Amino acid sequence: MQAFVKTLTGKTITLEVEPSDTIENVKAKIQDKEGIPPDQQRLIFAGKQLEDGRTLSDYNIQKESTLHLVLR
């Protein structure tokens, strides 16, 4: 499924993900596309910070959801 990641600069990245993907996995995909190390990434969805060990389905993130990427 497709999900979108919006950065603070307003850029939107499109990712191909599965509901079973972990947040860690998603961060690795963002690193592949953008070169941002996962340890600098914080992903926010519905106002919550997403934890590495959880999956997209844990957070009820469905296709075409938009996550927000904040860098630390």
Rank of each mutant, 00 (worst) to 15 (best):
M1I: 10
M1E: 03
Q2E: 07
Q2L: 15
Q2D: 05
A3T: 12
A3L: 15
A3I: 15
A3M: 15
A3V: 15
F4V: 08
F4M: 06
F4C: 05
F4W: 07
V5C: 03
V5A: 03
V5R: 01
V5N: 02
V5Q: 01
V5W: 02
K6R: 11
K6A: 07
K6I: 15
K6E: 08
K6Y: 10
T7Q: 06
L8M: 13
L8K: 12
L8I: 12
T9W: 14
T9P: 04
G10T: 03
G10R: 03
G10M: 04
K11V: 09
K11C: 07
T12A: 04
T12W: 11
T12L: 13
T12P: 03
T12H: 06
I13A: 01
I13Y: 06
I13K: 00
I13M: 05
I13C: 02
T14C: 09
L15R: 00
L15F: 07
L15P: 00
E16L: 13
E16I: 14
E16W: 15
V17K: 00
V17A: 03
V17D: 00
E18N: 14
E18K: 14
E18Y: 15
P19M: 10
P19T: 07
P19G: 08
P19Y: 08
S20L: 09
S20D: 11
S20F: 11
S20W: 14
S20M: 10
S20R: 09
S20T: 13
D21I: 05
D21V: 03
T22E: 02
I23V: 10
E24L: 14
E24G: 12
E24M: 13
N25V: 14
V26A: 02
V26C: 03
V26Y: 00
V26P: 00
K27T: 02
A28Y: 13
A28W: 11
A28Q: 14
K29C: 03
K29I: 06
K29G: 03
K29M: 13
I30N: 01
I30M: 03
Q31G: 06
Q31K: 09
Q31H: 14
Q31V: 03
Q31T: 10
D32F: 11
D32R: 12
D32E: 14
D32L: 13
D32A: 14
K33F: 08
K33T: 08
K33V: 13
K33W: 07
E34Y: 08
E34T: 15
I36D: 02
I36R: 02
P37T: 06
P37A: 09
P37S: 09
P38Q: 13
P38M: 15
P38Y: 12
D39T: 10
D39W: 14
D39N: 12
D39S: 12
D39P: 06
D39E: 13
D39L: 09
Q40C: 10
Q40G: 06
Q40E: 12
Q41E: 01
Q41C: 05
Q41T: 05
Q41R: 01
Q41F: 14
R42Q: 14
L43C: 01
L43A: 00
I44R: 05
I44M: 13
I44W: 15
I44V: 10
I44F: 15
I44G: 03
I44E: 11
F45E: 01
F45Y: 13
F45M: 07
F45L: 06
F45G: 02
A46N: 15
A46P: 01
A46C: 09
A46Q: 15
A46D: 14
G47K: 04
G47H: 05
G47A: 04
G47L: 04
G47N: 07
G47C: 06
K48R: 12
K48S: 08
K48C: 08
Q49Y: 14
Q49C: 12
Q49A: 12
L50N: 01
L50V: 04
L50Y: 01
L50P: 01
E51L: 11
E51W: 06
E51A: 08
E51D: 10
D52T: 05
D52P: 06
D52I: 05
G53W: 12
G53T: 10
G53M: 09
R54F: 14
T55C: 06
L56P: 00
L56W: 04
L56N: 00
L56I: 09
L56F: 04
S57V: 07
D58I: 03
D58W: 12
D58K: 03
D58E: 10
Y59C: 02
Y59T: 01
N60Q: 08
N60A: 08
I61K: 03
Q62H: 11
Q62Y: 11
Q62K: 12
Q62V: 14
Q62N: 11
K63Q: 12
K63W: 10
K63R: 11
E64H: 12
S65K: 07
S65N: 08
S65H: 08
T66V: 14
L67T: 02
L67D: 01
L67I: 13
L67K: 01
L67V: 06
H68N: 08
H68K: 07
L69C: 02
L69M: 07
L69E: 00
V70M: 11
V70F: 13
V70K: 08
L71P: 09
L71K: 07
L71S: 08
R72G: 11
R72A: 14
R72T: 14
R72S: 13
